[in-house]
Design a binder for these strands. Structure first.
Length: 890
DNA sequence: TGTGGCGGCGCG
DNA sequence: AAAGCGCGCCGCCACA
């Protein structure tokens, strides 16, 4: 390669040790182009030789590709400082070198590793959409250039008498370095390398899947729609679009034939009624993409489908597909979709500007000064008046083309935006209603078309992967999950408000107490860094581990709890943290989340976790405090409605029961069939003591902790930390290791089962739980031991966590017709939230005697295991004070 | 001024 | 050498 001796085309060279030129076989048909050198590359002068280089090697080897027979280069040849992304001007300046390499090597296939390289070759495409898809470049994408004193000059190739650069195939991929951070991405990269091998063998169509219906027909539904009958296929894909402040439905769209879709406007009552009748039919399956969003909207339109499937859930079950409709349908059907934001953007912009003009033209109250912290000292800051902020945004829109919507929402609610929105209402985005109807109809219809087209493909993939039952179970829980979100949980707003005040007072007192212990210096107890400098710097206390970043010593609870006796400042710091957490995460936000009826509505995500669990967000109702007295005061503010009680149904020891079932360990199974307390029985056995000699702290708690640890493959040092934390005395690493060994000696098949799961993971790169739910563990095929071990632990935990989820999901499906029937009969029986092994309900007092035994029996018989399944039922007026249900209560 | 990573911590 | 699974959210702080 005729590289220049050095290069100063951009400022990056000044901070780099050397220019890292492309390297390798210059007559290779395959070339890799990554982003920029990192630390290792900068030292060694070769591209992709650090950790991500090793990762690249491994993926290549596993796919049968010889990386060392290839040419490897970067889009940018000098290491950016601090490993930041290279800037556009740096990339542009460095292009001359990449073009030279491409012309010299003239590869047939170029792998673009990462977003920067992909953008260089293909422009602004989404990697989520196009990764692994071979795309042909233009005939001669690379101009001849000349580097002169004025910079880079592009010359006309033909005029220079040069041959045009030969066309080649670009395969965009995620960068291995990204996979090292987000190890789940390894699955996608590994798949793409397998795909690359096929591309090299000429087995893959260039450009990906072709859109089979490039000229679709989308339209407002004709008047004859009122006579619509069930489609011959029994399949109808449906989507909804909302507009207006309260998310009022604007239309729904449907498709029963690929490439054809219709839109029914929300005001077309007759057509909606006809459609509602059509889908309320056992012969018709309604296909939705993200049913949890659409079902409540459809309900508002009077449409309650008889049978629903969800393509987003299908994509989730398959694990290696994008969940967004746009990327999904591009990859599966080659169909291109405009984004909603793009479609409504012009309207959003117009409305935002008008809003900001109004804000700017009013005088607003001067904001109160805010107390902040600056280098450990309190500091009073005078926030900018909100009308000034609005003016600033308008100016930036004019001068820099800023996005007015984004900028306004970048202002914190407590920075004036909340006040303004309280008075003139929030800024309203553009809706489909605000753009020309033809465009709106096209956009809305296309989603239904896309959903219909992906369904048969997903359906076949689910079948091929043995995931039909898993999918069916997930889909069967949709109605209950949807109801939970719509119903919400009742909170006592005044109680939360006064609690917050008390917490604030408490925090002030603690902050004073903390500062009284140090030499006139203030610290912000909310700052881990300042706390660390105080404890381990000024006070010279004995530090534990460093933080992950390594810049200072960790101050987490586990570490500094043990320092309470070493210095009196430690205790108030920990207490302050507890108060701060409760106030900032629960007491304050929950008030704000509550609707006018004092109910908080969470968003439950069915497609988020690796193990099949649900997650809850905005607000998260799955992590309301329970373990400390103070935290329970938050829980106490969750109330039952008048005439109702809260009911909690909790699977007892469900993960261990699942483990007993899947491992078939005789001892573990006996514990449960004989109805014993697992951890007590374990402690008696391990310590060789009769029950009356078992001490909780000395025996049962260690056995319990070790037991839970085995499900995660805990290490002896980690177990030691746990035990010491709980106040168990006399443990060391050796004894902890012994305890773990003893646990497994007592339940030997559990260990064998875990090891067989590791083998399964290493062999297939994925593991299945007892319901055949699949979890990918691409980590086991990493080049790095630490990551492989983490992958194995994740794999080992999947059968228990996934299995437990499978059981409660089946129970939820079984309970759905029961509670729906009660509701139809006029009773109050509402599911509120699922917390992994627990369901919380709001139940009319009068029907408790019916509901408790019926629901308990339903949950306990949802699946048949080799051991009994037990449920604990508790009721009460608030969520903190539940008691075992005895029956016969009022 | 706005953003994202990190430390820390709430739950199962 | 590091050595615990699964989540979401808060405040701080470095950085652009």
């Amino acid at each position: 390669m005729n590289n220049p001796p050095d290069c100063h085309l951009c400022p990056l060279r000044d901070g780099a040790k050397q220019v890292v030129w492309g390297y390798g076989n210059e007559s290779s048909e395959l070339m890799f182009v990554a982003e920029a050198p990192g630390k290792n590359e900068d030292i060694k002068g070769r591209p992709m030789v650090g950790q991500s280089g090793e990762e690249l090697d491994k993926y290549c080897r596993d796919a049968g590709i010889d990386r060392y027979a290839c040419f490897v280069d970067n889009a940018v040849k000098c290491k950016p400082p601090g490993d930041r992304d290279p800037k556009p001007n740096e990339i542009a300046a460095c292009s001359v070198h990449l073009i030279r390499a491409l012309r010299q090597v003239h590869p047939k296939v170029v792998v673009a590793l990462g977003a920067v390289a992909t953008k260089w070759f293909l422009g602004g495409v989404s990697l989520e959409q196009v990764h692994g898809i071979p795309i042909e470049t233009d005939t001669d994408p690379f101009p001849i250039f000349e580097v002169g004193p004025d910079g880079v000059q592009v010359l006309d190739a033909a005029a220079q008498g040069e041959e045009p650069a030969p066309a080649f195939i670009v395969v965009p991929m995620y960068h291995p370095a990204y996979a090292l951070r987000e190890t789940k991405m390894m699955a996608i990269i590994q798949d793409d390398f397998k795909q690359l091998a096929k591309i090299l063998r000429g087995e893959v169509a260039i450009g990906g899947v072709k859109d089979a219906y490039p000229k679709p027909f989308y339209s407002l539904a004709p008047p004859t729609i009122v006579r619509i009958g069930p489609p011959p296929s029994g399949l109808v894909a449906v989507d909804t679009e909302s507009a207006g402040l309260n998310g009022e439905p604007w239309c729904m769209s449907f498709s029963t034939t690929p490439g054809v879709a219709y839109v029914i406007r929300a005001n077309n009552k007759k057509a909606l009624a006809a459609f509602a009748h059509m889908v309320d039919d056992p012969r018709v399956t309604t296909i939705l993409h993200n049913a949890l969003y659409d079902l409540p909207v459809l309900a508002k339109l009077g449409i309650i489908p008889f049978k629903v499937v969800d393509t987003m859930v299908g994509a989730y079950n398959l694990q290696r597909l994008p969940q967004g409709l746009k990327a999904l349908v591009y990859r599966l059907c080659g169909m291109e979709m405009g984004s909603y934001e793009e479609v409504v953007e012009p309207a959003t912009r117009i409305k935002a500007l008008a809003y900001l003009e109004e804000v700017q033209s009013h005088p607003w109250p001067v904001p109160e000064p805010v107390l902040t912290w600056d280098k450990g000292r309190p500091h009073v800051k005078q926030p900018q008046p909100i009308e000034k902020k609005a003016a600033r945004i308008l100016k930036d829109v004019d001068e820099k083309g800023a996005d007015p919507w984004e900028r306004w929402h970048g202002i914190g609610l407590d920075e004036g935006r909340g006040m303004v929105e309280g008075i003139i209402g929030p800024m309203v985005p553009g809706y489909l209603a605000d753009i020309p109807e033809e465009q709106a109809v096209h956009y809305a219809a296309r989603d239904a078309d896309a959903t219909l087209r992906i369904w048969p493909i997903l359906s076949a993939m689910l079948k091929a992967e043995g995931l039909v039952d898993v999918f069916a179970t997930d889909v069967a829980t949709i109605p209950m999950i949807s109801d939970m979100m719509v119903k919400g949980m009742r909170v006592d707003k005044p109680q939360l408000a006064s609690f917050s005040k008390e917490l604030e007072k408490g925090m002030e007192g603690l902050a004073r107490e903390i500062s009284s212990h140090i030499r006139g210096e203030y610290i912000n107890p909310d700052s881990p860094k300042q706390v660390s400098e105080l404890l381990f710097g000024e006070l010279k206390l004995k530090p534990g581990k460093k933080t992950k970043g390594g810049s200072y010593y960790s101050t987490d609870d586990d570490i500094i709890k043990g320092l309470k006796d070493a210095h009196p400042v430690v205790a108030p710091i920990l207490k302050y943290r507890e108060l701060s957490k409760v106030k900032g995460t629960y007491a304050d936000p929950l008030q704000a989340w509550a609707d006018t009826g004092s109910r908080v509505h969470t968003t439950i995500k069915m497609t988020r976790t690796e193990t099949g669990r649900y997650s809850s967000a905005d607000p998260n109702l799955q992590n309301i405090p329970i373990r400390t007295e103070l935290g329970r005061l938050v829980r106490k503010a969750f109330l039952a409605s008048p005439g109702c009680v809260l009911m909690s149904m909790d699977y007892s020891q469900i993960e261990f029961r699942v483990e007993a079932h899947v491992s078939q360990d005789a001892n573990l199974m006996r514990v449960f069939t004989e109805g014993k307390d697992l951890h007590l029985a374990t402690a008696m056995d391990i310590f060789g003591l009769p029950e009356h000699k078992i001490d909780d702290m000395q025996h049962r708690r260690p056995a319990k902790t070790a037991g839970f640890g085995t499900l995660f493959d805990i290490s002896a040092p980690a177990l030691l930390v746990q035990l010491e934390n709980m106040g168990c005395i006399g443990w060391d690493e050796v004894r902890c290791q012994q305890l773990i060994d003893d646990w497994f000696r007592l339940y030997p098949r559990v260990k064998e089962h875990m090891q067989s799961v590791y083998r399964e993971a290493r062999r297939y790169g994925n593991v299945r739980d007892m319901f055949n739910r699949m979890r990918l563990v691409p980590e086991v095929k990493s080049a790095h031991n630490r990551i492989i071990r983490a992958g194995e632990r994740q794999a080992g935990n999947m059968p228990a966590q996934g299995g437990a989820q499978g059981i409660i999901k089946k129970a939820m499906a079984d309970l759905t017709p029961l509670y729906k029937t009660l509701q139809e009969e006029g009773d109050v029986c509402d599911p509120l939230i699922q917390i992994h092994d627990e369901l919380v309900w709001e139940i009319g007092e009068g029907i408790l005697d019916t509901v408790v035994p019926l629901f308990a029996a339903t949950m306990e018989s949802a699946v048949r295991l080799s051991v009994p399944v037990k449920v604990e039922m508790k009721v009460g007026g608030n969520w903190a004070e539940l008691h075992k249900y005895q029956g016969g209560e009022k």
